[in-house]
């Protein structure tokens, strides 16, 4: 059905024609096929008809809140979703991520940032060869042997630290909300206990980052969560 099977298809759901035009310009130049929808309803129709590879969804749609569109979509569809929000909407960002969005961008955003996020999303659905070894910076994680080395020296990680690192590797380059991480590691009852997470993040960074004041791989997204960048140079 797709016009060009080689090109990944992105659906842009945004009511602003200028944003849609701009996204089309950026995305087509980078080798994506682009479809547009103006409203949540139209967007859903597009998803049903064309089954895009990724969706860029604006949270402030004229017909219904983007978060609602997302929630309904996630009932039957797992296509990666990148949400667009505007300044000052930290709450809706988190709501969107918790409702199943894979990442977010705040308007105004840069082209490089957008493309890096999109690449990360598409990489996730087409996992590379099931490599048991994963490298980032000066560290290497042997997932099969459950061993972490830095500059060739074995690092000692506690069970929780390792679980946290594993979670980040599984969801690399993608933002994870506090709630998602807490739930995964300490169970649903711990969803509000952000100090657990902060404490373990600090321990993990101490062991794996070069500069604690400017971490490169374990990035903090203020008020939202964390993002693990396997290759910071690629993330703009």
């Amino acid at each position: 059905m797709k016009p060009d099977a080689a090109k990944p298809e992105v659906l842009v759901i945004d009511d602003e024609p200028q944003i849609r035009r701009l996204l089309r310009l950026i995305l087509e130049e980078d080798g994506y096929a682009v479809r547009e929808a103006e409203t949540g309803k139209a967007g859903q129709g597009e998803i049903l008809r064309h089954n895009p590879d990724a969706i860029i969804l604006d949270l402030g749609l004229p017909d219904e809140p983007g978060v609602d569109v997302l929630r309904r979509l996630r009932e039957w569809n797992a296509t990666p979703v990148l949400i667009l929000s505007v300044f000052g909407q930290e709450g809706s960002k988190v709501a969107g991520l918790d409702a199943g969005a894979d990442d977010y961008l705040t308007k105004p955003f840069g082209e490089a940032e957008l493309l890096a996020r999109l690449r990360a999303l598409l990489r996730r659905i087409k996992p590379a060869v099931a490599a048991s070894k994963f490298r980032f910076g000066r560290c290497e994680v042997d997932l099969a042997a459950r061993r972490v080395t830095r500059d060739g020296h074995t690092l000692h990680l506690t069970t929780t630290e390792y679980a946290l690192l594993r979670l980040f590797i599984t969801h690399r380059d993608k933002v994870l909300t506090h709630r998602q991480i807490l739930r995964e590691l300490w169970g649903p009852k711990a969803e509000g206990q952000t100090h657990y997470l902060r404490t373990y993040m600090l321990r993990l960074r101490r062991k794996l980052e070069d500069d604690l004041e400017a971490p490169r791989h374990f990035q903090t997204e203020s008020g939202v969560g964390y993002r693990f960048l396997s290759d910071p140079a690629d993330a703009a």
């Binding site: 930290e90 709450g91 506090h178 952000t194 100090h195 902060r198 993040m201 600090l202 604690l212 004041e213 400017a214 971490p215 903090t220 203020s222 008020g223």
Partner: peptide, 12 residues
């Protein structure tokens, strides 16, 4: 929205 913060994150 008060939440536990690591000062290094804030500065970063």
């Amino acid at each position: 929205q008060l939440d536990w913060c690591d000062v290094r994150d804030l500065i970063g």
